[in-house]
C-alpha cells in the first residue's frame, strides 16, 4: 500500500485506470439493467414494482460500503498518517450520502404501493436515516472548520464514532421484528431469492461499486488539485 501513498503516483494510476473503470461500469449497468427490466419476471405479489428493488438494494449496499470505506480511511489516517487517506475519506462522504438518499427515496417510492405508507419507523429504516444524518454531520464538519489539518483530525473521529451504526443497520432486521424484510441475498444458509432475479441484482451491485470507484477516484483527483491550488495561493500571498 505504501507505494500508493505518493499523490503523484496515485494520480498517474488513477488517470490510467479511470477510462477502463468507466467502460466496465457502463457495460455492467447495461447487462444488469437488461436483466432487471427485461428478463427478470414480475413478482407474483408485488407485480412490476419489484423492479424498484434493483435500484434500491445496491444503493443501500453502497451507502453502507462507502461509510465503511470512510471509516477505514479515517483509521488509516490516524494510524499511518497516510497523506491520501483523509482525501479518500473526505471525497467519499458526498457520494455515500447520495447513495443513502437514493436508497431512502426508492424505498419510500416502493413502500407507498406495498406497505401503504411513504415511511414507517421500523429499525432498518430508522438506522438508515441515521446513516444519512451521520453523512451530513461528517460533511458539515469539513465545512465548519476552516483550518484543513484540524478539520481532518476532527472528521476522522466523527467517521469512526459513527461507524457503530453500520452493524446496527446490518443486523437491525434480525434483532427487531421489522416491516422491512430480513436479509435474503447475503445469508449464511444461501440466498432465498430465485436466480432469475438474483443475477441482475448482483451484476447491478457490482456496477454500483464500480460507479462508486470511478466517482471516488475523480473526486479524490479534484480534491488533490484543490489542495495544490490552495498551497500555491498561500505561497503566492507569502511572496507578495
Amino acid at each position: 500500500m505504501q507505494q500508493f501513498a505518493n499523490p503523484t503516483r496515485f494520480l498517474a494510476i488513477a488517470n490510467k485506470a479511470l477510462p477502463l473503470i468507466w467502460v466496465l461500469t457502463i457495460i455492467l449497468f447495461a447487462i444488469g439493467l437488461y436483466g432487471a427490466l427485461v428478463t427478470a419476471p414480475p413478482d407474483y405479489q408485488q407485480g412490476e414494482t419489484v423492479r424498484i428493488m434493483f435500484v434500491h438494494v445496491p444503493a443501500a449496499w453502497l451507502a453502507m460500503l462507502v461509510y465503511t470505506v470512510m471509516a477505514l480511511a479515517s483509521a488509516v489516517a490516524i494510524i499511518f498518517r497516510h497523506p491520501l487517506a483523509d482525501v479518500a475519506a473526505k471525497s467519499a462522504a458526498p457520494i455515500g450520502a447520495v447513495f443513502c438518499f437514493l436508497a431512502l427515496a426508492t424505498g419510500s417510492l416502493w413502500g407507498k404501493p406495498m406497505w401503504g405508507a411513504w415511511w414507517v419507523w421500523d429499525a432498518r429504516l430508522t438506522s438508515m436515516f441515521v446513516l444519512f444524518l451521520l453523512y451530513v454531520g461528517y460533511i458539515a464538519i469539513w465545512q465548519a472548520i476552516e483550518e484543513p489539518g484540524r478539520a481532518a483530525m476532527i472528521a476522522r473521529i466523527v467517521a469512526l464514532v459513527g461507524f457503530i451504526n453500520i452493524p446496527v443497520i446490518k443486523f437491525s432486521v434480525d434483532w427487531w421484528n421489522t416491516l422491512h424484510q430480513p436479509a435474503s441475498v447475503l445469508r449464511m444458509d444461501g440466498s432465498t431469492i430465485d436466480w432469475s432475479i438474483r443475477w441482475p441484482l448482483l451484476v447491478l451491485g457490482l456496477a454500483y461499486t464500480l460507479l462508486f470507484l470511478a466517482l471516488h477516484l475523480m473526486s479524490m483527483r479534484s480534491e488533490i488539485a484543490a489542495r495544490k491550488l490552495r498551497n500555491l495561493q498561500i505561497a503566492r500571498s507569502g511572496e507578495a
Binding site: S127, L133, I164
Partner: peptide, 16 residues
C-alpha cells in the same frame, strides 16, 4: 455557532 453542529453529530448517537 457550534450548537447546531453538536445536535447533528450527537442526536444520531442518542437514538439507541
Amino acid at each position: 455557532r457550534g450548537g447546531l453542529l453538536i445536535s447533528i453529530l450527537v442526536l444520531p448517537l442518542y437514538v439507541p
